[in-house]
């Protein structure tokens, strides 16, 4: 569930910001924003976690009835925001790597600037952008701090973002460190869950690989 939320935040905002920086921003703006983004990447994730728990959740509780103090919605949003600087910076690099000759080809057909951005630059940078999102996503999936603080440790299977739940990594650690007896269902579940994590990551990579082939950039 938070995975969807993360992408829901990261994809549209990440793309818009990357396009703005690469295609529209004046060089002076880009030169200021890029280092700022890279600095944001260095903020310790526990800061995001407490920001989620202490600021974001109380704020959203005003608007969303039934939102618990420990929930999935807020960390989902926060994780989405947290990976944004990384996603934006990597996708922007990919977009800037699209050669000008392709842009000029688009303009020569009578495309307007936004058409060049959406029809030439995004497809041209597709594998880079996909890589940015997959890597950003895997950062978020592997991220325990924000969720541990703001979503709790309760291995709760829910699609209701107002409730809390644990991440896969948090669950594995919790189970293996805790007093789960060897051979019990709970113990075995660690492996099932671990396998699931493996399958999810593998699936991401296979999709990424396929897309990469399909939209091969040979320029």
């Amino acid at each position: 569930m938070p995975d969807n939320l993360i992408m829901f935040i990261a994809v549209p905002f990440g793309l818009i910001m990357a396009i703005y920086l690469s295609e529209y921003a004046r060089p002076a703006v880009r030169e200021t924003v890029k280092p700022a983004l890279e600095m944001l990447e260095a903020v310790p994730t526990v800061v995001y976690g407490f920001f989620a728990l202490l600021v974001m959740t109380p704020f959203l509780q005003n608007f969303i009835p039934g939102l618990k103090g420990i929930n999935l919605l807020v960390p989902g949003i926060i994780l989405g925001i947290m990976i944004l600087p990384y996603v934006v910076s990597v996708s922007e690099d990919a977009m800037r790597a699209v050669p000008n000759s392709l842009r000029e080809g688009g303009y020569a057909l009578g495309m307007a600037k936004w058409q060049v951005a959406t029809r030439i630059v995004i497809p041209g940078a597709f594998s880079g952008i996909t890589a940015a999102f997959i890597l950003g996503m895997s950062r978020a999936v592997g991220e325990t701090m924000v969720l541990a603080v703001a979503a709790g440790q309760n291995p709760n299977l829910t699609w209701d973002p107002r409730e809390g739940a644990a991440t896969i990594t948090a669950y594995i650690v919790q189970m293996s460190l805790g007093d789960v007896a060897y051979g019990t269902t709970a113990y075995e579940s660690i492996f099932a869950v671990g396998l699931l994590l493996f399958v999810i990551t593998l699936a991401f990579n296979v999709i990424g690989f396929y897309l990469r082939r399909k939209f091969r950039e040979a320029y």
């Binding site: 000759s101 000029e104 020569a108 009578g110 495309m111 307007a112 497809p123 597709f126 091969r216 950039e217």
Partner: peptide
């Protein structure tokens, strides 16, 4: 300029097909 380019097409020195 956009309308002009709709009427006057161009082919460049280096082939520049789109990644499509």
């Amino acid at each position: 300029p956009v309308i002009v380019r709709l009427r006057v097409g161009m082919v460049f020195q280096k082939p520049n097909p789109f990644p499509k």
